[in-house]
Computed example of a mutant assay.
Amino acid sequence: MKLDSTIAAVVTGAASGLGAATARALAEQGVKVAIFDLQEEKGEAIAREIGGTFCKVNVTDDASVDAAFAKARAAHGQERILVNCAGTANAIKTVSRDKETGEIRTFPMDAFKFIIELNLIGTFRCIARSAAGMLTLDPLDEFGERGAIVNTASVAAEDGQIGQAAYSASKGGVVGMTLPIARDLMNEGIRVNTILPGIFETPLMKALPEKAQVALAASVPFPKRLGKPEEYAKMALFMIETGYMNGEDVRLDGAIRMPPR
């Protein structure tokens, strides 16, 4: 897909981190970008910066997602690109024992469900809504390409750490549904790919003590640093622009394989 001003895109979780970098990279190519996020102040600021449209949206809610897509399409037309970056994590063991009292605690099911709802079901909800809109578009080329979707999983999908049962399950689900969705959409000319980022310079990482950030960077085989959001954005644009890229899950991690903790 050729990126220019005739193309519209939606990027979820685009008020910061990986999503913001991707929104900027798309806008630099002339693409009209809608910022989907709950963070209103930051999202509006990114939208002003890139000449895009901010849509306040909760990806766990059908009505919120439908309203956001309607607003984005009213501003820019039907999107041909969807990049899913909305998500979060928690760190809770399946069961744990209090060191002082010996009390045994189990993973709160509401906390587990929330991560699945946001990271996995929220991603699928946006895919389904966006793909339905893409089906109304005319193909861009003789092969019938109508659109491209990029999802965000994590290296935790393959080597989750202690306390990442919910997070790994949600991201593993994103990886697992990539190929089936690509097959579902193959006759409609919509490609679907997923990036599995390693340890990146996101707001979550920047909130850690500097010592912790240095230790995490040192754990990466090469290059020994945290990933940059702009590198994620480059991978996303590669997946969008490369027509033969479909149904793939790609690690972007400096060759790291996460230890148990």
Rank of each mutant, 00 (worst) to 15 (best):
V59M: 01
I35W: 10
N187E: 11
D138I: 11
I104E: 07
K206E: 14
D159K: 07
L140Y: 09
K2P: 09
A207N: 08
A166Q: 01
R183N: 15
L204G: 11
G17A: 01
R105S: 11
A217D: 06
V175M: 12
F107G: 01
T123G: 02
F238Q: 13
K113G: 03
G243N: 02
L118W: 02
M239K: 13
N84L: 09
A63C: 03
L252Y: 02
L196S: 12
A128K: 14
V57L: 13
M186T: 09
Y244N: 04
R191F: 05
M245E: 03
A111D: 13
E230H: 02
G52R: 05
L185E: 03
K206S: 14
A91E: 14
V192L: 15
T22P: 03
T194G: 00
M1N: 11
T242F: 12
I199L: 08
T94W: 02
S170A: 15
L204P: 10
V65W: 08
L252P: 03
L38S: 08
G51C: 00
G13L: 13
T202G: 04
K56T: 02
V174E: 03
C126N: 13
T22S: 04
F69D: 06
I162C: 06
M239N: 13
M258Y: 09
R24G: 10
V10R: 01
I181Y: 04
V57Q: 08
E230Y: 04
A165Y: 13
E103C: 03
L204H: 08
G227M: 06
M186H: 14
G43Y: 15
N151Y: 12
A34K: 10
D138R: 15
G147F: 07
E248F: 11
G189A: 14
R183C: 14
L3Y: 07
T101I: 04
P197I: 01
G172P: 00
A182W: 02
G163I: 04
Y167S: 05
